[in-house]
Amino acid sequence: MKRILAAAMIVAATFGIAEAKEWTKVRIGTEGAYPPFNYFDSDNQLQGFDVDIAKALCDEMKVECEFVAQDWEGIIPALIANKYDAIIASMSITPERQEKVDFTEKYYSTPPALIAPSDSELSATDPGTLEGKTIGAQASTTHATFLEDVYKNSTIKLYGTQDEANLDLASGRLDAVAADSVVLSEWLKTDDGACCKMVGPMENDPQYFGDGAGIAVRKGEDDLREMFNKAIAAIRENGTYEKIEAKYFDFSVY
């Protein structure tokens, strides 16, 4: 019997079966280039809806919260490489990403949209209307994948950040830009965005845009994922979520 127990302990150690980790500090990865959800202010401090939600969740979980800024294209590889413990960066929950990481329940959901120069004749967002047009999007996003798969007769130009795509539109090098509707609406209110207009929402296909934005954690870290799920439910119940939402939006993003 002792030999059997010893062998079982060796197997458990080999295959990583262990007690759940006691989390006292959680490192949060975010982009810092996707206003109003995450961005750097004039003092080089991370701000935004994602950041405030992350802080509220850490408070609810009674853990120390540390933020790590990471370029979007490397954000999942850096999580897997243990650069941080979770991604809170407006990441849509999609089947492709679920092959690499685990997700919490959603913490917000907004549809995709298209913007164009103010003098553009575009009035619809379907692939036929955009045929022959050059459309910009941020690389490695659900919007980029959607455009490349569905808008086959358009030229798709990808950028490292959303701001780069928006500024190329303002400079007249693009016919349109696709992104999250809230992100685009906020940019249109800026001086740079005065050049352009909202064309309208795009098809919110769950195959591409998933079930909303969730928090990504490494595969198998179910304890941390469930801690976040309970905290999301708690801040929605106790009014904290609503206060943060009202700080950035005059409508519900859930």
Rank of each mutant, 00 (worst) to 15 (best):
M1P: 08
R3D: 14
A6W: 15
A6T: 15
A6M: 15
A7F: 10
A8Q: 14
M9D: 08
A12N: 10
A13I: 14
A13S: 11
G16S: 08
A18E: 15
T24K: 07
T24P: 02
K25A: 12
K25D: 04
K25I: 13
V26C: 09
R27S: 11
I28K: 00
T30Y: 04
T30V: 05
P36G: 05
P36E: 12
N38S: 15
F40H: 09
F40T: 09
Q45S: 03
D50T: 01
V51A: 01
A56P: 02
L57A: 08
L57V: 10
M61H: 13
V63D: 11
E66I: 12
F67V: 10
D71P: 14
E73P: 05
I76C: 01
I76D: 04
P77T: 15
A86W: 06
A86M: 11
I87V: 13
M91E: 14
I93L: 03
P95Q: 13
P95S: 11
P95C: 12
E96C: 08
R97T: 07
K100P: 01
E105L: 11
E105G: 06
K106N: 15
Y107A: 05
Y107F: 13
Y108S: 08
A113M: 04
A113F: 07
I115N: 05
A116D: 11
P117T: 02
S118M: 14
L122V: 08
S123E: 13
T125E: 09
D126L: 00
P127D: 10
P127F: 04
G128A: 08
G128K: 10
G128Q: 08
G128R: 07
L130C: 00
E131Y: 03
K133G: 01
G136E: 13
G136R: 00
A139F: 14
S140A: 15
S140G: 11
T141K: 03
H143T: 15
A144K: 04
A144M: 14
F146T: 06
F146M: 12
E148R: 02
S154A: 09
T155G: 00
K157H: 08
K157G: 00
L158K: 03
L158N: 04
L158W: 00
Y159D: 04
G160C: 00
D163I: 04
E164F: 06
A165M: 03
A165Q: 02
A170V: 12
A170R: 06
G172M: 11
G172T: 06
R173F: 11
R173V: 08
D175H: 00
A178W: 09
D180M: 09
V183W: 08
V183P: 01
L184F: 09
E186H: 10
L188R: 02
L188M: 10
K189I: 09
D191R: 08
K197P: 10
M198R: 03
V199S: 07
G200S: 12
N204Y: 07
N204S: 10
D205P: 02
Y208L: 07
G214P: 02
V217I: 15
V217E: 09
G220V: 13
E221S: 07
D223N: 13
L224K: 03
N229M: 06
A234Y: 05
A234R: 04
A234E: 09
E237S: 12
T240E: 14
Y241L: 06
K243D: 13
I244H: 00
A246E: 06
D250R: 02
F251R: 12
F251S: 09
S252G: 11
V253C: 05
